[in-house]
Design a binder for these strands. Structure first.
Lengths: 227, 227
DNA sequence: CGAATGATTGAGCGCTTTCAAGGCTAGTGG
DNA sequence: CCACTAGCCTTGAAAGCGCTCAATCATTCG
């Protein structure tokens, strides 16, 4: 199943290199990088840790819109927009590369490859978003959480951050809940159920997929959208 | 509230003109334009009627990912992709303009304005998608349907297809249900509730917003994402 | 060690679904 | 012009999934 997914991500490598030649900054878990509606003068590239974009309703409810892993550009899909339509924040201790908008634009127009990568990155984000529309609209809590595990595992495997059937998984149940549009309490019960069924276990911020085939099946997971 | 939204859509006009100089084709309601996974050799522009993109799970469940109104390009966000990640189909009797991929690419690289419009259209689609993530993840059935009504009203108002507090609304309750990730039965009860509260009524494929302010409030609707 | 944060458990409620039936309306053909 | 049909809308009852509230246990970190 995983054979369909390429094993290197030149995008990640290139962006990473580019970012390292500019400002880097460290955030602690939960810290806001950029609030909703703010103009963003820079683009951000994840060097270490995980980041997230979420939107908030006036009454306090909030929903995660995207999860960014190392090597990814945050809000690639809003490059060219004046304002962010969600708040960027750190899911874990996080190191970000920041590149000024203008400088990045110049780089883009200079190197065709970079422009292509940006477009590819935007399409990937968009594909993930569509997949999550399907998750939130149609999948049960069990399916959603199983799907999240599959997705984050495969995404990390693609960029070489997984080994065997394990990968980093530094999310609290509270954070998983917000990504999946569930409550923390119910998320807890579902994670227990996945463990009880010998599908997957989270220990020490590591995800272990005990039976990936079965997990994919219960999640109705189809990795083709991850390219 | 609507004052923040511009009143003309030069994008729609331009695309429309372009499309009219090429092939047009008519579909009947429910007809598939392009199935998931197919390579799409053309791009499509809605001339008349409404279209939709949806994805399907192996067990039959399906979720609408986008609704396309007259003047819009279907799957702008997947321009440049090889394969569609959802099925395009007609929500109503539908007239589409079709332009070959290569020809459109040529046009894009010739006219900077067109490229800019394409990018803007992609960003709009993406913003709508993010908003629907919030709807499906956090909003109640009542809020979702109220939000859909507000969104489709404003989108049509922007492109001049609404007058006063009414606009075309040719969806069946079944279709509304699929967009909102609800069952048809519950959708029916919610629409009755909106009617009972004197917020909005659907009659003869027309939506009448009796109290837009109150409807926006119950939907927690914020039109800023529509530009 | 203490404090704070995260994970777990229980009970009860409510929104949404499911299943199943009946009514309405528009379009069709006689 | 009417009868017929098919699709759409409406209604009721019951079950279930996920939420809320509230408390307790576990773990991490200073």
């Amino acid at each position: 199943m995983l054979a369909t997914v390429g094993h290197t991500s030149c995008q990640a490598a290139t962006l990473r290199e580019l970012a390292l030649r500019h400002t880097t900054r460290t955030y602690h878990r939960g810290e806001t990088i950029r609030a909703e509606g703010q103009r963003s003068e820079s683009i951000y590239i994840v060097l270490d840790g995980w980041a997230e974009q979420h939107a908030q309703l006036r009454d306090g409810r909030s929903q995660v819109l995207a999860v960014y892993l190392p090597g990814q550009m945050c809000s690639a899909d809003s490059f060219g927009e004046e304002r962010l339509d969600g708040t960027l924040s750190a899911l874990t201790r996080l190191r970000l590369g920041e590149i000024e908008r203008d400088r990045f634009s110049a780089y883009i127009s200079l190197y065709h490859d970079a422009a292509f990568e940006l477009a590819a990155s935007q399409r990937l984000q968009s594909a993930i978003q569509r997949r999550w529309l399907m998750c939130l609209g149609q999948r049960s809590a069990l399916e959603r959480i199983a799907h999240l595990m599959c997705e984050l595992f495969v995404r990390q495997r693609v960029s070489g951050q997984a080994r065997e059937w394990s990968c980093p998984f530094p999310l609290t149940q509270q954070q998983i809940a917000k990504i999946c549009g569930l409550t923390q309490v119910h998320t807890n019960r579902v994670i227990q159920e996945l463990r009880r069924r010998d599908l997957a276990v989270i220990t020490r911020k590591q995800l272990r997929l005990i039976d990936f085939e079965a997990l994919s099946a219960t999640a109705l997971f189809d990795p083709s959208y991850l390219q």
